[in-house]
Nucleic acid binder design. Structure first.
Length: 503
RNA sequence: GGCGCUUUCAUCUAGUGGUUAGGAUACCGGCCUCUCACGCCGGGUACACGAGUUCGAGUCUCGUAGGCGCUACCA
């Protein structure tokens, strides 16, 4: 008996897709998939002033990367098209006329200057039942005069006529009943003759109705205007969809919602993909280019404002689809915590296709003027190092010693492990190692351990001195894994050089 | 200013009248160990404040304070 689930993500192509928008769309996606419903992709380009070329494609590319798929909409087709609002002018005109004919809307001719003046003259000026009588519109001027002005080519807008004094109730799936008195609503502009386009409010109601949208899941910034939308549905005599207003994503340190400037400020991306602002040199970094895996971004984002209530943190998309629940979404804004995302990324890095990391490492090696040797060599290093990184970018910095001999020795490591006996240990170890025909770490290790024990040395003292000589500092994987990779000749060469350099 | 939403550890959060207020990240400590990392174990002054309802309130009501959003011919 209940209507099929149809939800939509309807961005405005004014720039790159904000990470908050990504989360909104993700929740729509999870909801649609869980209910076997449809997710539509609609472009809300009713503001011709703010259109940015490339933005639409950017948004599409972003979702493709993230693994969020649509069933209908711009670039996907469907029976409710067109899905670009700028291509639906005639549809909106028709419905604006319906409102005009019903007396639910009226023409207004006030210029920008006149409106500014009114706002200036009256504190908290609002275009509504109290003030519309002294403005220039078809109510104050009369319809005949209005028609005459329009015939004369005077630019106009159509405003929604709000009846004051009524409590409008919005039933929100996340927040429950939200009540707002219509008196605080102003007569919103629904349509502007200048570009023959509706504003968001009208277009969104008409489209959601025509596209049979059952649930509107969107950001909390829309909550204050949702009563207006309810009134619009009523004016048309349409049944309104269910609403769910998601809390906002906040900047890490308290103040304000996460903005594109926060990216620079805190040093992490706020956009899924890198974005070059058209016609400028300005570039905003993206999660993809910064080395984040889509699974990590999705998992992290899903939990920012929702959680299944079962202490589970790592979830596949399918699990999230199964567990998602609007009533379990939190009501308050969530601060963006990049450290947590890093942890998710570390987790997914461990199980991702090694080719991703191998390609990244190879590129880094080359970029640093070193020789990647072979695919096999790189692959082994990646296997050894991946548990030590959160981002592929950290690879080179963590494992450069596999590709280049140390040129300096880290002070702290020296202080701790390059004690006065160290040169002697390493020299003797080199002599012993020289005699070993089988350089395989697995067979070498017990022999070296026996040798150390036979000498009565401390394992740590010998091994760490050797490590500092090979690596340049006291870190890295198991030491015989390192000697395996470097080979006998290079290992001994580095060890003897350290003795010489460090004396 | 007006209107609305919101308020549990540093951060994301569980919690729907009776809990030693749980988990995750981060941080700190320990174990493992040739180092680092992983892993495992452990740690910390979290229910904004004030009234009320109730035998009993993080959970319900009201108020105050803070945070956020909206208040455009932007979405």
């Amino acid at each position: 008996m209940s209507k099929p689930v149809v939800v939509r993500f309807a961005p405005s192509p004014t720039g790159p897709l904000h990470i908050g928008g990504v989360r909104t769309c993700l929740y729509n996606y999870l909801f649609a998939r869980q209910h076997g419903g449809k997710l539509l992709f609609r472009i809300e380009d009713t503001d011709s002033q703010r259109f940015v070329p490339g933005a639409e494609q950017y948004i599409l590319d972003s979702f493709k990367w993230l693994g969020i798929t649509f069933d209908e909409g711009v670039s996907f087709g469907g029976e409710h098209g067109p899905y670009r609002q700028s291509e639906r002018r005639e549809i909106y005109k028709k419905y604006v006329q319906v409102l005009l004919d019903n007396g639910k809307a009226y023409y207004a001719f006030d210029t920008k200057a006149e409106l500014d003046a009114a706002r200036e003259a009256t504190p908290n000026f609002q275009y509504d039942a109290l003030t519309r009588g002294r403005m220039r519109n078809s109510i104050s001027l009369g319809m005949d005069e209005a028609k005459r002005l329009i015939a004369n080519g005077e630019p106009y807008v159509v405003r929604f006529l709000i009846e004051p004094g009524e409590d409008v109730v919005v039933n929100d799936l996340i927040r429950g009943e939200v009540k707002i008195n219509s008196s605080i609503l102003d007569d919103k502009v629904l349509y502007k003759s200048a570009d023959e386009l509706p504003t968001y409010h009208l277009a969104n109601i008409v489209d959601d109705h025509l596209m049979e949208v059952s649930h509107v899941i969107r950001g909390e910034e829309w909550l204050p205007s949702s009563p207006l939308h309810v009134l619009l549905y009523r004016a048309f005599g349409w049944e309104a969809p269910q609403f769910a207003h998601l809390p906002l994503l906040l900047a890490p340190e308290g103040n304000g919602k996460l903005s594109k400037r926060d990216g620079d400020k805190y040093g992490f991306p706020v956009f899924p993909l890198q974005w070059n602002v058209p016609g400028t040199d300005t570039t905003y970094s993206g999660y993809r280019e910064s080395g984040y895996l889509p699974e990590a971004v999705v998992n992290f984002l899903a939990l920012l404002g929702w959680n299944p209530g079962n202490d589970q943190d790592i979830m596949t998309m399918d699990e999230m689809i199964k567990l998602f629940d609007l009533s379990k979404c939190s009501k308050n804004g969530a601060h963006f915590d990049i450290k947590r995302l890093l942890w998710f990324n570390h987790h997914y890095l461990q199980q991702c296709d090694e080719k991703v990391l191998c390609d990244a490492l190879k590129a880094q090696v080359v970029a640093n003027g070193a020789d990647p040797k072979s695919d096999e060599y790189v692959r082994t290093v990646v296997g050894l190092m991946k548990e030590r990184i959160n981002l592929p970018q950290e690879l080179w910095q963590q494992c450069n010693f596999f590709f280049a001999a140390p040129t300096a020795y880290e002070e702290k490591s020296l202080k701790k492990w390059w004690k006065p006996e160290a040169p002697q240990y390493v020299a003797e170890l080199c002599d012993f190692l020289e005699t070993q025909a089988n350089w395989n770490g697995e067979t070498l290790e017990p022999k070296v351990m026996d040798w150390i024990a036979g000498k009565g040395y401390k394992t740590g003292a010998v091994m760490n001195a050797f490590r500092v000589a090979l690596v340049g500092e006291a870190r890295g994987p198991q030491i015989f894994a390192i000697t395996d990779q470097l080979g006998k000749e290079e290992s001994l060469r580095r060890a003897r050089k350290a003795i010489e350099v460090l004396k």
